[in-house]
Design a protein around this nucleic acid. Structure first.
Lengths: 115, 115
DNA sequence: ATACATTGCTACGTTTTTAGTAGCAAGTGA
DNA sequence: TCACTTGCTACTAAAAACGTAGCAATGTAT
């Protein structure tokens, strides 16, 4: 970096999430879903209820303890709930998934391009 | 019980992409961006180049070593690159951000609803 | 030039999180 | 009853992240 280093103006206040003061919504969300298997769980619940074991199988190396932690977090966040036959997306969870879904198609192109 | 436990280390066959054993593109992507600060970095690069320090400030508690790791990963994945005055999104990175952006508005509603 | 500040980044010890496995209580069915 | 499945907890080892110090290169003020 050989240029002058003027600190750019921040149009958006930068925000730490975890140990910090101002919880910018997107960062709060990233802090929740930016953990192992969080998005994978949402993804795998999108086409129907899944039991704990289902989710374990679909989230390959997720150990039961971690999976359980993720499920509790997502439930506390109101994104999933305990249905009779397993876990399911809430309304909010469905809405979030709808915004996650476009990543699927993009990921296919991207992975293919990497090879 | 603190007995010795066998550690068979079973090698399940599959595409070894970090923790993601399925090799499904979306899971490969989740494995990359589903880590601390990954999405935060992409988000904060969306409106202009950022220096290492900029990103540190905006990702509050991210230590330099972790931030550096994330930057390397994202660069290896072709999502960001080293520009003259800091880091910047590549074409792919921009495309990914475009699909992440809707989460911002949704997160605002969601956080507000939680209160 | 000299001194000091800033930046990108690495090193490394500590703390937190995740992996990996065992196992148990409750439910199901034979 | 027994065998089997399911949801989940317990626990240790391994991996990841934190937090701080510090270094080389460059910028800047005197």
């Amino acid at each position: 970096m050989t240029e002058k280093r003027a600190t750019p103006k921040l149009p958006k206040p930068g925000v730490p999430v975890r140990g910090s003061k101002s919880g910018q919504p997107i960062m709060v969300l990233f802090d929740l879903i930016g953990r192992r298997w969080s998005m994978g769980v949402l993804w795998n619940l999108s086409d129907g209820n899944r039991t704990f074991r289902d989710l374990q199988e679909r989230c390959g190396s997720a150990s039961p303890s971690v999976l359980n932690t993720r499920l509790k977090e997502l439930r506390a966040a109101g994104l999933i709930y305990n249905a009779d036959n397993g876990y399911a997306l809430t309304e909010d969870g469905r809405q979030l998934f709808d915004r996650l879904e476009p990543l699927g198609d993009w990921a296919m192109d991207w992975v293919e391009k990497l090879r």
